[in-house]
């Protein structure tokens, strides 16, 4: 399997995980009156799940998602040959 394809699959899986993790039923479960490491359960859970999602994004992005990216606007030295703005009259 190619890197980009695997990255795409990971991205979708991560997204689905996040959707479930932040869905109202799950939030209700973790809204219990309990503490973890001295933190409210919901507070702890939300930041832990969020951190996990971010870690997964970092992990996937490292894989080099999608076709090889290319430099989009590597600017030559001594700029100002950049294309003009959106001035339609130009």
């Amino acid at each position: 399997m190619s890197g980009p394809k695997r990255a795409a699959e990971r991205a979708v899986a991560t997204f689905l995980f996040a959707c479930v993790a932040f869905s109202p039923p799950f939030l209700s479960i973790f809204g219990a009156d309990a503490f973890v490491f001295g933190l409210p359960l919901l507070y702890f859970y939300l930041f832990a799940a969020w951190g996990l999602v971010i870690a997964l994004v970092a992990w996937t992005a490292d894989l080099g998602s999608g076709p090889p990216p290319q430099r989009i606007s590597d600017r030559p030295a001594g700029i100002s040959d950049r294309p003009g703005g959106r001035a339609r009259a130009g």
Binding site: P4, A7, A11, T14, A18, W50, V53, I54, L56, G66
Partner: peptide, 10 residues
């Protein structure tokens, strides 16, 4: 925004 960025490649 985090969720959107999960799908950044798309």
């Amino acid at each position: 925004p985090t969720l959107t960025f999960v799908l950044w490649g798309f």
